Simulated scan of single mutants.
Amino acid sequence: MTDNQNEFIKERLAPCGLHCGKCFAFAGGRIHELSRELQAALGNFGAYAERFVTLLNDPVYASYPEFTKFLDHLAEGGCGGCRREECRLFASCGVRPCARERNVDFCFQCAEFPCDRTGFDENLRRRHVAINERMREIGVERYYEAIRDLPRY
């Protein structure tokens, strides 16, 4: 793996192994990009949505203002990823500071993996352990290739 490939993958995969690039908050990620595209494609649809409630006799269009609030949130995409800033999703995450302290790129590279320093709930902890075991088994690059186009959630 070239240094450029390695850096690209590390920008996308957090030290815990979760795919930051697929997170809804990741700036430049697919959700961020698609949300902006949808905003542009919808244009001034709000004015029509109001009328469609009556014209099409469909109350679903009354939910459009709430939908646009959510879409606006997804289109913000202001996170640079866990390697650049603190995790915006898991306030109790202890992985990033631990990885820095132990000078590892991923948890599986630590002699104490798996440990209890993550701060994750049991569901996320199980996922984190499985991801890191898989990366250790097949390598980070092969792991990234296998999951890069899969949804994160």
Rank of each mutant, 00 (worst) to 15 (best):
D116L: 09
H32K: 08
F113S: 07
G17Q: 13
F108R: 02
P65V: 03
E137A: 08
T118L: 12
M1I: 07
D72G: 03
C93F: 12
R126M: 06
G80M: 07
E145P: 02
Y61A: 07
L13Q: 13
E7F: 01
F52T: 02
L38N: 01
A146I: 02
P97V: 04
G78W: 06
K22G: 10
P15A: 09
D121N: 06
R30N: 03
E137K: 11
P151I: 02
C82A: 07
G81Q: 08
P97M: 05
R51Y: 00
F26V: 11
R125H: 15
R96C: 06
L55K: 01
Y143W: 01
G28S: 05
C20V: 08
A49V: 04
N123I: 15
N4K: 07
I131W: 15
E85R: 09
K69E: 04
N44I: 02
F52H: 08
C98N: 04
G78E: 07
N123V: 15
Q109K: 00
R100D: 05
C93N: 10
A111D: 12
P97K: 12
R127A: 10
P151V: 05
F70Y: 07
G139M: 01
T2Y: 08
F52Y: 06
P114L: 13
L74Y: 03
D149M: 02
L150K: 07
S63F: 09
E11V: 10
A146N: 09
E145S: 10
I9M: 05
K22S: 05
R152V: 15
N44G: 02
G29H: 08
S35H: 14
P65A: 04
G81C: 08
N132H: 13
N132E: 15
E112T: 05
A47E: 04
C107K: 03
R134Y: 13
A40R: 05
F67I: 13
D72S: 04
G81M: 10
G78I: 01
G28A: 06
L13V: 15
A25Q: 14
D72F: 05
R88I: 14
A41C: 02
G77Y: 00
G80A: 05
V60T: 12
E33P: 01
R88Q: 15
A14T: 12
P114S: 11
R142K: 13
T68P: 03
P59L: 00
P59C: 00
V129F: 08
Y48P: 00
Q5P: 02
I31N: 11
I31V: 14
L13I: 15
Q109V: 12
H128D: 15
K69Y: 01
A62I: 05
F90T: 05
H73S: 04
E122D: 14
C93Q: 12
H32F: 14
F70S: 03
I9L: 04
V129Y: 10
R84G: 10
C79N: 03
H32Y: 13
Y61L: 11
N44C: 00
A14N: 12
F24K: 06
G46M: 04
G119S: 14
A99H: 11
F113D: 14
V104W: 07
Y64I: 09
H128S: 06
